[in-house]
Amino acid sequence: MNTTARSRPSAVTDIDVLRVFCAGDGRYGNALGVVRDGRTRPDEASRQALAKELGFSETVFVDDPERGDVDIYTPGVRLPFAGHPLVGAAWLLDLEVVHPPAGEVWVRGDGEFTWIEARAEWAPPRTLRRYGSAAEVDALDVPEPGEWIYAWAWEEEAAGRIRARAFPGRGDGIDEDEATGAAALLLTAELGRALNITQGRGSQILTAPGPDGVIELGGRVRLERTLTLTP
């Protein structure tokens, strides 16, 4: 997966577009933009502008590909931590650890899955709203902008299977988030057990509580395409 970066003028920006938390057949997953050479967008304003232009739920800028120093943006704000961007970046960079602003994130591979270790307190606040059935979650309309809602219901409680949908409520063009690792961390911490979450159209997120408040977050990743932006 690793490739040697080509020498490019600083004004040219290469962006790998990944799908993170794909289903078993490779479909679905949340789109993620990864700028492998963060020097092409060196300041916060230019990074925020690019994240808004791309319109993905998150875009990652890699500041040091060997150390795994990364910077994460939604179309509207910079984030210290986010689940699917870190799973995707760790897979793409093929590292054992990545460093977002929130702290050190350890990584492991397990066959088709990439796992990261994180803490629920790193996740931004979310409203976890439980429903009585998966059908109720499926029938939900996108709410008006406001609070960030993670709607969920048990599909099979004994097996830890969850049906979920995520509504960021930010008014930035992302009405529904296809696969949300941070919210999965919060739900895992609340329920205190491993979960197998089907979110959005069919994305799959796996979680597993560990010692000392650490939670593993895992899923499949695939490279969809590479974009090149020029002035």
Rank of each mutant, 00 (worst) to 15 (best):
R201M: 14
R19P: 02
S57M: 01
G210S: 13
L185W: 00
I215Y: 04
G88S: 02
L18D: 08
T13I: 12
D37A: 11
E44H: 13
V105G: 07
E224P: 02
P65G: 07
P85A: 09
L223Q: 14
A45P: 00
E58H: 07
R78D: 01
R129F: 10
L191C: 06
R67T: 09
I205Y: 00
Y131I: 07
G219V: 04
E53S: 13
V137R: 08
E136Q: 14
I149M: 11
F21T: 05
A135L: 12
R165P: 08
T226V: 14
W152V: 06
D172Y: 07
R163S: 06
A49Q: 14
L128S: 00
A120G: 07
T3H: 13
V105Q: 00
E104W: 09
R27V: 00
D25W: 00
D177S: 04
V87I: 08
F167D: 04
L186I: 09
G76L: 11
W154L: 01
L217E: 01
D14G: 08
V105Y: 10
L186V: 09
A166F: 10
T4A: 12
D138P: 07
T40H: 12
N196W: 12
A90R: 06
R170W: 12
L128H: 08
A120M: 05
L223T: 14
G146K: 01
G210Y: 09
V97Q: 14
L206T: 11
T40I: 01
S133R: 04
A182L: 02
E216V: 01
E147I: 12
G132A: 15
P9Q: 00
S10E: 10
G55H: 11
G24Y: 06
P101N: 06
R39E: 08
A45F: 01
D94C: 12
T230N: 11
L206P: 05
A139L: 09
F167N: 05
P9N: 00
G29Y: 06
D14I: 00
R193F: 10
F21A: 02
P80A: 13
Y28R: 11
A151N: 02
D25Q: 05
I116T: 04
T3G: 11
G38L: 04
V60Q: 01
I149V: 15
G109N: 13
P125V: 06
I215S: 08
E117F: 12
D212W: 03
E155R: 15
W152L: 00
P124F: 11
V214L: 13
T180H: 02
L217V: 08
A183Q: 07
D14E: 14
D16A: 15
R220M: 03
D14V: 10
I162F: 03
T180W: 07
G83H: 02
T230H: 14
E147D: 15
T198H: 13
